[in-house]
Amino acid sequence: MTTTTGTYRPIPIGELLEMLRNDGFQITPDSYRRVFAVVNTFFPDGLPVDAADQPIESARQELCQLLGPVLVRNETEQERFAKQFHQLVIERATAPPQPPYHLLLRHPQPGKGALFRSFYCC
């Protein structure tokens, strides 16, 4: 889930790594460790956003360039990573915040009252 706090937006690391894994990247527990180490060092507050709540382009680019070398293993993956990364970050920036459906025991469809109903059903 992506919400904004102040002038920063949380980085969707879990989604990114899952997306990459589905795309054939070799994502290991060590990948998570390395990615968290990079993010905690260089972007501890998240991805900075501008007045329009959009990630600042230079920061987005820098984060992509920092995470790419950790996760890719060849030239083709390097290209694919950049595309996947930007696609995800831009999508998250334009999409409205979503409730954490994946944390619920049941998975209701988005709709009026669906979220609360699922809590009562559990």
Binding site: A37, V38, P69
Partner: peptide, 21 residues
């Protein structure tokens, strides 16, 4: 290049070898 610079930063941070092709 800025992308190469960032790769070096990561290699130094994680103390891992930087493989360049």
């Amino acid at each position: 290049d800025p992308a190469l610079y960032n790769a070096v930063r990561v290699a130094i941070l994680l103390q891992q070898p930087l493989l360049l092709t």
